[in-house]
Write a protein that binds this DNA or RNA. Sequence first.
DNA 1: CACGGGCCGCGAATCGATTCGACGACCGCC
DNA 2: GGCGGTCGTCGAATCGATTCGCGGCCCGTG
Lengths: 343, 343
Amino acid sequence: MRHSGTTLTDVARAAGVSLSTASLAFSGAGPISDATRDKVLAAAAELGYHGPNPVAASLRRGRSGVVGIVMGAAVRRAFRDPVSIQFLDGIVATLAAQGYGTLLLSTPEAQELPDALLTHGAMDAAVLTAGALTSRRTLAALRARGVPMVQLGGTGRHGPAVRARDKQGMKLLGEHLRERGHERVAVATLPWHVEPRSGPVDLASARRATSPITARRLDGLREAGIEPVAAWECSASLVEEGIAAGKELLAARPTALVGFTDLIAAGLLLAARDAGLAVPADVAVAGFDGVDLPWLGEVRLTTAVQPTADIGRLAAEAAVTLAEGGTARSVTVDVELRLGTTT
Amino acid sequence: MRHSGTTLTDVARAAGVSLSTASLAFSGAGPISDATRDKVLAAAAELGYHGPNPVAASLRRGRSGVVGIVMGAAVRRAFRDPVSIQFLDGIVATLAAQGYGTLLLSTPEAQELPDALLTHGAMDAAVLTAGALTSRRTLAALRARGVPMVQLGGTGRHGPAVRARDKQGMKLLGEHLRERGHERVAVATLPWHVEPRSGPVDLASARRATSPITARRLDGLREAGIEPVAAWECSASLVEEGIAAGKELLAARPTALVGFTDLIAAGLLLAARDAGLAVPADVAVAGFDGVDLPWLGEVRLTTAVQPTADIGRLAAEAAVTLAEGGTARSVTVDVELRLGTTT
DNA sequence: CACGGGCCGCGAATCGATTCGACGACCGCC
DNA sequence: GGCGGTCGTCGAATCGATTCGCGGCCCGTG
């Protein structure tokens, strides 16, 4: 963006027209004769001018054609989790198709650093990702700027939310397990609170999880009439965490293992195999998300499938609507049970 | 970005100072007394003003604090491949740490649509990703705008390139296999040409691959003195492709299978297991990239490890340097052999 | 031939800041 | 007490476009 040299003024001069006419030739917003347009475009080509400076246009228009994705401090985590990647994927693809750019923003670690958002947050709308326990400062800044926000999997407090029916999904899964006659179910959950940790959870005495996803998924199981015989908190959605959880949970002699994500469930499955148990004969395994796990080979995990691509798309569409001055409502999408070979 | 209402002018008026002084209070670039600054900041807080409008600042400064990542038409692909995700991860994290935002750009499918780049490409530098056979128009636009470019894994034709020593990596891998006494090596490659396909490759008659990565990796194997007994082209870096390739390649009775990526190699491994072959006793398997494959369980894949995080970081650093007017040189990073349990 | 209406091109204001030279006040020193 | 030097503040120009109202010209019509 350093001074590219030729500006629209130069082009106008070269074409022998006024600045305003030259602008019209590019934007097409207004009456202009073909002859004049061609003249301007020819002059532009001559000078190597490739269209109006986006920054200047944004300033004047008051819109930048960019939607920000606010990832909080969790950039790295977001890129390691297949589900958030699928969200991102859906968002970026949809935005691109609508002619919008995507600005990835993370709140810097150091609190007092100039927030990137404040420095170059030229966006027409923002998508707040779930993992990001977005800082109050960030939210305040966005709000003050008048940037409309869409929340991914959140509460909808800061704007319309797009989320999956987590509870319903887990309920379906739980009912399925009960139908199969499983009474002793052990769960490997996602983190319960802001500070993630790995370790056992005593369900009888535990306070309700403050992390909404964990709370909702557990609620779903319970609504299906399942009270887990053992629970293990995984600090993240990782196969390794699932393996570790599985090793511990199997001590409770469960007939079914439920992972709060497919990666965790895959870990549970590997742990069960390692322990010499046959799946599903000796122990059933189920997950949540519906991510692709081609490496399980012939085995297909029973899981509650979130339509991740749709969620991303819906979030992007809502963001675009808001960016263009419209209004959008929260959407909750259904989660579907996909029966595999593990239950 | 729709008119947020309060501007720096309002703040200045409320604080009883001039516009220029108010600007100084925020930018800190220039002499200003503490008292005045506090007065301005207080007035700003009062009015709910959260810092200067980034677009206006960008226009004036001539820099936007944003680095674009150009993904060509391959957005979706980029989000499905763990290696490019790791690149992205490294880039985004580094840029964020330096106070830069990251703009994800994809050339739209439809050729004649207004290129997002042209419409809102407010960036100080761009990183061209490898997969993206970036359209000439995009390149021309960037060049004309004077946006400096860094190439990821490219040829360095459009700017400094950051790449891995692919050939050396494959050579190390090949030498390792030869030391182990493997003479019959079969390979599952990445796509050879712009148009990816899945299918057998007749190495004897095949033209050199036009895809640089494929060509360089194959060269590496050959430099190690390995002339594959069979080759299969995979259309993408996917486990499924590797499985399919494995099924076919095993017909040639190889003693070792080399996948051009770890995902492909993982597929080869699964295919070998499926065929009832023990790894590495009956057939050895090796890959390239060094991605995390926790689901292989105890098995660790022998592979040539690219320092993906470093590559991302270096690309981002080069981009920042260029953005700030400096110059950067191409960097080629070493690939390391990591011995696993599969050879 | 005169008048009304389109069509097109032009001027000028504006978006919201940054930045630099100029200027005023205040201090200290001789 | 006067003068030079700082420190801080202010004005004004500028970044590169968009947009809207105005007006000239040409054509058709009465």
